[in-house]
């Protein structure tokens, strides 16, 4: 099997992890208008709680649900305790970005204070394998791809076919107008924090499964890849995030087949820069 074909398959798996994280991030950003850089730190904290549950003998996929619940709770608290008071005081978007950076450090090092500086791994079986052409996927890898597809379908159904989804789209388009139209925007925002937080927690666990092992600071670079996928697809565009994740995931893995692999993240940003020059609003963003 050529390294190129293998890198394509690996790209799909990397893109799956990135897609789950990016969808949650962009959904959060679209509706709440907060560029929450603490998102990756919440991912890690959720992954750690899921790890503790997993070590207590619970199957990793069930632990992932616990991770999702933790992510939802943390995101809810983050909004209520930190971001909402700032927004009420009319803090500028850049101020909120700085606050979220601060929260990243607090959550990340708070996690590290409790769990220590070393890495941990989930106890899980790779499961049965599936050959696709000359490439063999393990059960765990297939599970990750399946979770990504399920998340994408769920988000699609949510935003297209549910009352909440309509309200979210309205709040994302124009919050004041949505409020005037009778939409409880505050409640929509709160629910968005909870739902996107759940996706964030799930992404944290899947990230840990895919990485093999993870530490409190493991997502430091990953958040940059999330941003790349989100902005490549068009900020606030869930479908754009899916496409962006696929492009970034494939781009990084395929490039690693041909160049020194420690430069593969650089490739992600070369793709992003080229794309933004050609289309500043992202692949699926509205034309300016």
């Amino acid at each position: 099997m050529s390294v190129f074909v293998a890198s394509l398959a690996f790209g799909v798996i990397s893109a799956s992890v990135l897609a789950i994280a990016s969808i949650g991030f962009t959904l959060q950003f679209a509706v709440t208008n907060v560029l929450n850089l603490a998102y990756a730190a919440v991912m890690t904290a959720s992954a750690y709680v899921a790890y503790e549950v997993n070590q207590a003998g619970v199957v990793v996929w069930v632990s992932a649900l616990v991770g999702a619940a933790v992510g939802a709770t943390m995101s809810y608290l983050l909004n209520r305790v930190v971001y909402t008071p700032f927004q009420r005081r009319k803090a500028s978007p850049i101020t909120l970005v700085i606050v979220s950076l601060g929260m990243t450090l607090i959550i990340e090092f708070g996690t590290q204070a409790f769990v220590g500086g070393t890495n941990v791994s989930y106890t899980m079986a790779n499961g049965p394998t599936l050959g696709v052409g000359s490439f063999v996927f393990t059960g765990a890898e297939l599970g990750i791809v399946a979770v990504a597809v399920a998340t994408m379908v769920a988000v699609h159904v949510l935003i297209r076919y549910t009352r909440l989804g309509k309200a979210m789209r309205a709040a994302a388009a124009n919050r004041d107008l949505a409020r005037v139209c009778g939409i409880r925007t505050a409640r929509v925002v709160t629910v968005t924090w909870i739902l996107s937080g759940a996706v964030c927690g799930l992404a944290g666990v899947v990230f840990g499964m895919n990485a093999g092992s993870f530490g409190a600071t493991s997502t430091d670079i990953f958040v940059v890849l999330i941003l790349a996928a989100v902005f490549l697809g068009g900020p606030g565009e869930p479908y754009g995030a899916m496409v962006g994740a696929l492009v970034i995931g494939l781009g990084t893995e395929v490039s690693a087949a041909f160049i020194q692999p420690d430069y593969k993240d650089v490739i992600a940003f070369v793709i992003l820069l080229v794309m933004l020059v050609a289309r500043p609003t992202g692949l699926l963003g509205a034309r300016t």
């Binding site: 099997m1 990953f222 420690d262």
Partner: peptide, 16 residues
Amino acid sequence: LTLDLTATTFRTEAAR
């Protein structure tokens, strides 16, 4: 190969 210590997987590197 140079491995990026912040990377989460090295599957393509392993394939190479």
